[in-house]
């Protein structure tokens, strides 16, 4: 059974890129436009892993990660955050909130798949 990965980003192009890469590698992809949307979709979807941006309107990545970790259904799900090199403090916040790992933007499809293998197997 294909694993389902949720990509959370307010940028359509980043979501497209993630979706394109992951679908190509045989994963099912669910898209969410921000943290609030992601939480809503997690209520009724089984997701094996999440890739989220940190800067988003409504509910940002850090808030989203905290919310997911305190929720019982997806408490142990691997979460990868997308960061930029200028966001070292953000990265620390993300890890403290419970992110599994990170990818520095911009990234290439192979890098994304590499990280996926690392946290999802």
């Amino acid at each position: 059974m294909a694993k389902t990965i949720m990509t959370v980003d307010d940028s359509t192009s980043v979501r497209q890129m993630v979706k394109f890469t992951l679908s190509g590698a045989g994963y099912d992809v669910v898209e969410a436009v921000d943290g609030r949307d992601a939480l809503a979709k997690l209520q009724n979807t089984h997701v094996d892993m999440m890739i989220t941006d940190l800067n988003m309107p409504n509910l940002d990545g850090i808030g989203l990660i905290r919310a997911v970790r305190s929720d019982t259904s997806h408490k142990f799900m691997p979460i990868i955050m997308l960061t930029t090199e200028s966001q070292d403090t953000k990265k620390q916040d993300g890890k403290a909130a419970g992110a599994t790992g990170w990818i520095v933007k911009p990234f290439k499809p192979e890098q994304l798949l590499g990280v996926l293998k690392k946290v999802l197997g």
Binding site: P78, K117, V119
Partner: peptide, 8 residues
């Protein structure tokens, strides 16, 4: 709790 699977 960080979603890490050490076996991987």
């Amino acid at each position: 709790l960080s979603g890490t699977n050490p076996l991987l």
